[in-house]
Design a protein around this nucleic acid. Structure first.
Lengths: 235, 235
DNA sequence: AGACATATACTAGTATACAAGTAAGCGGGC
DNA sequence: GCCCGCTTACTTGTATACTAGTATATGTCT
């Protein structure tokens, strides 16, 4: 026998792919892309997991062609590492990579905040999201809290009319989220600060203080760095 | 006969692909990707050009498989639009898209400038590039001038240690460059201003004034907006 | 003549077969 | 015992055949 995936041989890829169902009436590529991506981000596919195209294709009952397209996209995002003629693995957690992701996100979202401070926004549209986030935070419902956090940021990007920028944020955010979900523990107790940041951001925008709005957003996004530094060393 | 590429039928795709040679000892995908990308950016493939996978594959004497990978990557960058079961075309010039590209680039590079102002840089390494740029500008050698401009920005990103951010800048920069090369005319006379911006940026970084460094970079990148507004209306 | 149904050729999406390359395991030679 | 070289099985890369869907053109009916 040849090598049987040296170390990660214990991991059951098939089990992790259990819930994947492909709708044959739509394109397969984007579907399998989302399925793999979500599993990588929430660490159902631990870093280092070997993903054989042939095996995954067999398990999902699709051909390698659309699967390859998905894998190449994920490789472009840095979530999968493809070694030609050798194999593909889920990218290991890389602190430097996460730090850079935070850097990029902070840069783009600070620019969004700056623009919104210059143009003004519809605060009424944000109010319900903000209220829901506050409520979730007060009852320590982290999952809901972060869903509204995500929604808040998404709405800001939408108001700034920069869909591609938001798309890029989503791309780098994958690395940040994966890290956060990996160090799940340290979330507790820090929720309300994110909410306070949002309130402070809206105040700066309301004043039309572009520099301050950008600074608040920058610090807000960069606060993720603290979680990173205090978390586990490697992985 | 069916439809023979309705309008752009006059354009000779084969001629535009003339110089493409594939090195069979290396992977084909990345090679054809670069070949197509450069031709789209310098407008050898005008916006709207129909790119049939079968035809391009035949002309370049490759199979559709690696070509498709390249086209999908380009579609991800927004340089090609692929309509399932219909066809793929070179993306039309889109002013909104270019504006957003400038927005993103300004955001990221301003953050780079900010970081460099905070950490300090090796100015000596930049001096020769700056000098060469100045010289090129003084003799109205725009091509060389912009090559050193590119190099200057690349070195800054490298000093800030954010390779992925630079990669993203490269991606959005494609849209900016394509627009600039399209409106080639209006370049003239504006060169030295870019050089002056660089000098001013370095001064701010030297002072350690993060806010000013970021502002200078932001304005510098945003100056591309002027070229856009004064250029041709559509295309 | 105009409008609608239909045939047809072209598209990208998918499946599969084959090629090229890598690394682990094994055996022989030293 | 150790090291070199070969075998072998596994990987991704590439080529090709086929499927499904769309828009054009054409013919026909009203």
């Amino acid at each position: 026998m040849p090598r049987l995936t040296p170390e990660a041989s214990a991991f059951d890829v098939q089990a992790a792919l259990k819930g994947v169902v492909i709708d044959r009436t739509r394109s397969i590529g984007p579907q399998i892309y989302e399925a793999l991506r979500s599993r990588i981000i929430d660490n159902r596919f631990p870093p280092g997991t070997a993903l054989s195209e042939k095996e995954v294709a067999r398990i999902c009952d699709i051909s390698r062609t659309p699967l390859r397209a998905a894998i190449q996209d994920l490789a472009g995002e840095g979530l999968i590492i493809v070694k030609p003629q050798v194999g593909s693995v889920v990218a290991p957690h890389d602190a430097a990579r996460v730090r850079e992701a935070i850097f990029i996100r902070a840069a783009i979202e600070a620019a969004v905040a700056r623009r919104l401070a210059e143009t003004g926004i519809d605060e009424a549209a944000l109010a319900p999201v903000l209220a829901a986030q506050k409520a979730a935070g007060e009852r320590d419902d982290y999952l809901t809290f972060f869903r509204y956090d995500e929604e808040f940021h998404r709405m800001l990007a939408q108001m700034a009319d920069v869909p591609k920028a938001w798309q890029m944020v989503q791309s780098v955010k994958a690395h940040i989220d994966r890290q956060r979900l990996h160090l799940m523990s340290s979330i507790s107790g820090r929720s309300m600060r994110a909410y306070d940041d949002h309130v402070q951001l809206l105040e700066a925008i309301r004043r039309g203080d572009a520099g301050d709005a950008a600074a608040v957003m920058r610090d807000h996004v960069n606060s993720a760095l603290e979680t990173l530094e205090t978390g586990a060393p490697e992985s």
